[in-house]
Design a protein around this nucleic acid. Structure first.
Length: 265
DNA sequence: TACAATGTTTTAAG
DNA sequence: CCTTAAAACATTGT
């Protein structure tokens, strides 16, 4: 379920293990979440090290351990992080478990679209430092948004917003929310944005990301009640702004919800 | 049964 | 080389 705010919430679920030593690592090396990873190194190097701190950027999390160890986690479609009492037997979908004296830190992912990365060395890993600039940061300007739209003039904006090279952390529900609040049809092309629309789009990307962090990202609390978020899951629900039944369709390869009355092409 | 699911990667075509 | 769209991935729930 994770987009940037959900990722931030799950990242904090391992905070209870900060400063504690990893006594053992239980994992299932054959699972696809480990593709490309030296699983043996991960296990041998992590055992004995301590969790120092963590941070998230878009849909990626970085966990920094002592002894120059870095663990990267992407939650994919169904991943989550949690802590469980020590000694508890890992569940069917618990593919990475870090045993500490007082708890187990668990990465659970039924659908296995998630991913684990591991690096050992003095510097922050390349895969972390090369992530695109956050949509909430200073480098994400309206000029950058305009450039992105001009570079992909024929792509539906819904599909463009899902592109992690440009909008790291934005996923299916956020893209729908952004376009609905901007009153822009999800099929609209980047090249077809007038100046006011571009400005609305930019402001909504920023405000929705920020607000999601303050609600979902803080304690998984609900975002504002008037958001499309609460209505987009099932067909037949009504637009929170005008009451028109919401439209649903497949855009950018994903189920998309929009208001045919509020959002213009 | 068949399809959909808050995601990325690969493949192929233009 | 670049852009774009569709299929593939693995599992569960309706």
């Amino acid at each position: 379920m994770p987009e940037l705010a959900e990722v931030e919430f799950y990242r904090k679920q391992w905070d209870c293990g900060l400063r504690s030593q990893v006594l053992d690592v239980q994992l299932r090396p054959a699972k696809r979440i480990y593709r490309g990873v030296q699983v043996h190194d991960l296990r041998q190097l992590l055992i004995g090290s301590r969790l120092r701190d963590s941070r998230s950027n878009g849909k990626w999390m970085l966990f920094r351990f002592s002894r120059q160890n870095y663990l990267g986690i992407h939650l994919g479609m169904t991943g989550r992080l949690l802590a469980a009492p020590p000694g508890e037997v890992p569940g069917k979908h618990d593919h990475l478990v870090l045993n500490q004296r007082k708890r187990n830190l668990i990465f659970r992912d039924p659908r296995l679209f998630g991913r684990v990365l591991f690096s050992h060395g003095p510097d922050l890993p390349d895969w972390w430092t090369r992530l695109p600039p956050s949509v909430t940061g200073d480098q994400f300007t309206i000029g950058r948004l305009e450039e992105i739209c001009q570079r992909h003039p024929r792509v539906a904006l819904k599909a463009l917003l899902l592109d992690q090279r440009y909008f790291p952390g934005i996923g299916n529900w956020m893209a729908d929310e952004i376009l609905w609040q901007s009153r822009i049809h999800p099929q609209r092309r980047g090249a077809a944005l007038d100046r006011p629309s571009l400005r609305r789009l930019y402001r909504r990307i920023r405000s929705i990301s920020k607000k999601a962090m303050e609600t979902i990202g803080e304690d998984y609390g609900p975002p504002p009640s008037k958001w499309l978020f609460h209505k987009r899951w099932k067909a037949g629900f009504e637009c929170p702004a005008c009451g028109t039944p919401l439209s649903r369709g497949r855009i950018g390869g994903r189920t998309t919800s929009w208001c045919g009355s509020c959002q213009s092409l």
